[in-house]
């Protein structure tokens, strides 16, 4: 291999700094640790090949995610890319449901009693398009603008997907909270 320039070294160091985030993203796309590793490796290989197109000082994490997502869709999902639908789940919020059931809104402490594994399970149950926006914005801290760039959609779409995803998430967590006795359920008859 030829001698590396300082820029290439910096590029490599910054790219590796995003590895955990990329791996998490790959895991939720592929849902398989081996496939996730392959996807991450291919993402870095492509990033290395196109590193001249990366502008230093811009958001490298967003750039790497965009590469990874394109690779994934090209490779694994070409056939059903269009088939992914977003269900209209209607307006439902954990907060409102609990307020109706309890007579007042839940205290934030309720959240402390929800196991992290439950949260991950609830996110895994979201549709792929909802799941990825929650993970980009909530877990990886992307701005709406960067998330929109990665996903190739307008900012308004990021916002509406995020809103619906959070509603679905709250619905699932509410059911869990009732089942596990964290909050009393069934005070109001829901038919």
């Amino acid at each position: 291999m030829a001698e590396q320039t300082v820029e290439e070294q910096d590029f490599g160091t910054e790219a590796i700094g995003n590895l955990d985030a990329l791996y998490r993203g790959a895991l939720r796309l592929t849902r398989d640790p081996d496939k996730a590793q392959d996807l991450v490796q291919d993402t870095y290989a492509r990033a290395l090949r196109y590193q001249h197109s990366y502008q230093a000082g811009t958001n490298m994490k967003a750039w790497l995610f965009a590469i990874m997502r394109n690779l994934y869709w090209d490779r694994f999902q070409k056939a059903n890319r269009e088939a992914v639908s977003i269900d209209d789940i209607g307006e439902f919020a954990l907060y409102d449901q609990m307020r109706d059931d309890l007579g007042e809104g839940p205290e934030t402490e309720v959240l402390d009693r929800i196991a992290r594994g439950e949260v991950v399970d609830a996110i895994e149950k979201l549709s792929p398009l909802h799941r990825e926006v929650v993970l980009l914005v909530d877990v990886e801290g992307f701005s709406y603008k960067d998330a929109a760039t990665v996903l190739g959609v307008p900012i308004g779409t990021v916002m509406s997907r995020l809103h619906r995803a959070r509603q679905q998430l709250q619905k699932d967590l509410f059911e869990y909270a009732v089942e596990s006795g964290i909050v009393p359920g069934g005070l109001n008859k829901r038919s």
Binding site: R24, L94, T108, L111, I114, R116, G117, V119, V120, I123, V134, L135, D138, V139, G141, R166, L169, Q170, L173
Partner: peptide
């Protein structure tokens, strides 16, 4: 709180 919980969970 929910946003924070999602973040730490992952």
């Amino acid at each position: 709180g929910l946003k924070r919980l999602v973040k730490v969970s992952y």
